[in-house]
């Protein structure tokens, strides 16, 4: 590729000399877009990389802000997890705090914290997988069956909206609708069941509430990727099946669903890969003192212990454990996704 750049410089600035072949160099014909450009000397020497860098100085210069960002805000925190192995205290800093090895990890795994967090996090993830994950698929299949284009567009426009509002707004709406003083859904439920149900602070309703919020917020937007897969289905398949006497149900089952099967598999795999990531903001906002027994997950625990209570080292250890498990899961599931012939997360 170097040859092309030589050529550019040559055209632009005639003072740059093109080196003639030397003893350890060779002639090469650089061909591009059917035009023979010129013969250039691709000399293998140590100064070549430097020369290349100098020629493409501006390209590397442009990388600088982003590179600095990654070093400072991504890589330095990665090395910052050393605090998980220390008794970090802000006055002694990263270098002065005593090293304690795996003490925090030992405390974490032998104490009751680990199992509580693990149970709560996994419960939410598994429930999400069972109830929330199929929702966009069903919605996409339904949308695909709509005959009226206008109706389809109206429905789509409406169901995408909640994706773009913040979790603070979702939580606000939930509180407005469910609170026991004047929430209308609370009133409604009282009419039906005859008793006052405090959905917001009862531990047994916390999980259904979170799953419900997720379904309400993300189902519509989640259909996009499946609808994209569906748009590629050959219409002739449907016509052929119809000629053979297949009803709508069978068309959906035998043509539409198989068409999005690979998308479903990949989405499922990627979802499993992020199983420990229960959305922090959502849970943080819906959590309160009364439902803490089920609402404390890894992320909220790290926040409470670390940021609120200042136990930097212990909470870093918990965070590191979560990060490591997540990393292994993501790499593993990504590998699986690629095995299925799909592009994974990266």
């Amino acid at each position: 590729m170097e040859q092309i750049d030589y050529c550019y410089d040559y055209n632009k600035n005639a003072t740059i000399s093109v080196k003639l072949p030397s003893k350890n160099g060779t002639f090469k014909n650089a061909e591009m877009e059917g035009h023979i450009i010129m013969a250039v000397n691709v000399k293998k020497s140590k100064g070549k990389t430097l020369q290349y860098m100098r020629r493409n100085f501006w390209l590397y210069f442009m990388l600088l802000p982003g590179a600095l960002f990654f070093v400072i805000f991504k890589y330095i925190p990665m090395f910052g997890i050393i605090v998980a192995f220390q008794d970090f205290n802000p006055f002694q800093g990263f270098f002065g705090s005593p090293f304690v090895g795996l003490t925090h990890f030992k405390n974490f795994f032998t104490g009751s914290d680990f199992w509580d967090l693990f149970k709560n996090t996994l419960s939410l993830s598994v429930l999400n997988l069972i109830f929330y994950f199929p929702a966009p698929i069903i919605a996409a299949l339904f949308l695909n069956e709509l005959r009226s284009v206008t109706y389809k567009r109206v429905v789509q426009t409406l169901i995408y909206v909640p994706h773009f509002v913040s979790y603070v707004i979702v939580a606000s709406l939930t509180y407005t609708l469910f609170n026991i003083n004047d929430g209308i859904i609370h009133e409604f439920l009282r009419l039906i069941t005859g008793k006052s149900i405090d959905v917001l602070s009862s531990p047994e309703y916390f999980r259904p509430l979170i799953i419900g919020q997720s379904i309400w917020k993300e189902t519509g937007y989640g259909t996009i990727i499946f609808l994209a897969a569906l748009s590629g289905v050959d219409m002739e398949l449907y016509q052929a099946a119809k000629v053979d006497g297949a009803g709508r149900w069978r068309l959906m089952w035998h043509i539409t669903l198989p068409a999005i099967r690979s998308t479903i598999i990949v989405m499922l795999i990627l979802r499993v890969g992020t199983i420990l990531n229960t959305g922090f903001e959502q849970i943080f906002l819906m959590r309160n003192d009364l439902n803490r027994s089920v609402s404390e997950v890894f992320d909220t625990f790290v926040y409470t212990k670390g940021i609120t209570q200042g136990q930097y080292s212990y909470s870093s250890a918990v965070g590191l454990f979560k990060s490591l498990v997540s990393t292994v899961m993501i790499i593993g599931t990504n590998w699986l996704a690629k095995k299925f012939g799909e592009s994974g997360l990266y």
């Binding site: 990665m78 910052g80 790290v302 670390g306 909470s315 965070g319 990266y346």
Partner: peptide, 10 residues
């Protein structure tokens, strides 16, 4: 950096 992060505290 997409796969692994230092986490909240660091």
């Amino acid at each position: 950096t997409m796969v692994f992060s230092g986490g909240m505290i660091p």
